[in-house]
Amino acid sequence: MADSLINQNKVPMIAITAHPTKYNGTQDPESWLQDIRFFCRLHGIDEEEDIVSFSMLKVDPMIYVPEKTSTFSGLVKALKSHVTYPVMEASALHNLRKLKYSSNMEMSDFISTFLSLCRSASVRNLEEQKSYLLNSLHDDNIRNILSTKFRNVDEFDWVIKIFQGILYEYPLHQIRYGSRITIKHCVTGQYLSHGEHKPIEPGSQSSRVYCNGCKPKENEVWIVTSPYSENKSPGDPVRFNSIIGLSHGKSRANLSASNDRDVLTSLGKDKSCNWVARRHTTESGYHNDNNGVWAIGDIIILEHVNNKLPLYTRAQDYEGNQEVVLEGDGFEENNKWYAEIIGQ
């Protein structure tokens, strides 16, 4: 009885309910037809021919659809054969290329927009989809991480899961002004360290720095600070090639360097306490590209601002400590370091 009432009331119910939008060539035909089919099913219209007949009434008159069209595939084919379809497709591709992810966006909204544009632009190849996802990122560093993660993935669902996971996790790994870090030498595994303040000469505010220990303790903790004469906001990420200061966590002395290339800590602060964190690359040692944010595990060169020389370690002294100086050209293995975060 209920079914017969629904069938009797098909037209009146459709007439009084908000209709799907008219197709005018600006939509993806398949998505638009899906909305029509849902609308019809909601009102008890199940026959394909009836749904197609109703759909044709919602197509703009400028778009030709043969009168004898009676199947979903035939309708979609007619809509795609009109000149508006390639224009819409090209527009979607243009917007896909411009699409950028921001940490202020909801991930679900971004992914939904991305998938919709891929469909409208007929981008179905997995490698192309990976490429557009990577291009949506502003940060070269995270783009490189994801590119490596994507390399052997052959399922789109996993691509999205990896994208989401890295984007959510990566900010926790970024080094920021105020971060408490250890600085580890890549070759030896020793940490940049500073013990009790022992002046290099009576009355001096400076004492020596060295590398020691394969397990970091309190003497190996450094705080990333604003450079001399600048005031960076605590919590802001440190971009590569930014000038920074490094304050010893326990003594609060600042990492500095003398004119004779000795690396020291100073209880005062001046331009000798300024350093540049440069990203290391296998091709060129280090370079001046300031894209990307310094993060855990990034191989870096710590370059002194005054003389442009990088941090370097030499042979162990008589106490088993590795001497730290300014030396090398950025290509040497002894110039390579990476950071580990103790806390933000």
Rank of each mutant, 00 (worst) to 15 (best):
I181S: 04
Y132C: 11
I142F: 05
M105Q: 15
A90W: 02
L126V: 05
E128W: 11
I181Y: 06
L117M: 05
R97D: 11
Q174P: 03
K77F: 05
L172Q: 12
K130D: 11
P171F: 00
S91E: 11
H94W: 07
S102V: 02
A92V: 05
S70R: 11
F114H: 10
Y170C: 02
K130H: 13
D154W: 03
C118M: 08
G74T: 01
E106A: 14
G165M: 07
I166Q: 12
G74C: 03
L99A: 07
V159F: 09
R143T: 06
D109Q: 08
E127K: 12
H94K: 09
R124I: 01
Y101C: 04
D157I: 01
M105L: 14
R180V: 09
T188W: 00
T182K: 06
D139F: 01
M105N: 15
V87K: 14
R97I: 13
L115K: 15
E128A: 12
I183L: 15
A78V: 04
F114N: 09
S136I: 08
K100C: 14
D139G: 06
F72P: 01
L115M: 12
K149E: 14
E128Q: 14
L117T: 15
N141R: 11
I142R: 04
V153E: 11
I160V: 15
E127P: 00
I142G: 01
L167I: 13
E106V: 08
V83R: 13
L79H: 01
A121L: 10
E89T: 12
L146V: 03
L134C: 03
L146N: 09
L172F: 06
R176N: 07
M88I: 02
M88Q: 14
Q164N: 09
L93T: 06
D139H: 02
I166N: 07
L115W: 03
E106C: 10
D139Q: 00
Y85A: 07
I166M: 09
S136N: 06
S120V: 00
E106I: 09
I162L: 12
Q129H: 05
D157A: 12
K184P: 08
K184F: 08
K100E: 10
T188C: 10
L99D: 12
W158N: 14
S73K: 10
N152H: 08
L167F: 02
S179D: 07
I111Y: 12
E128M: 13
F110H: 08
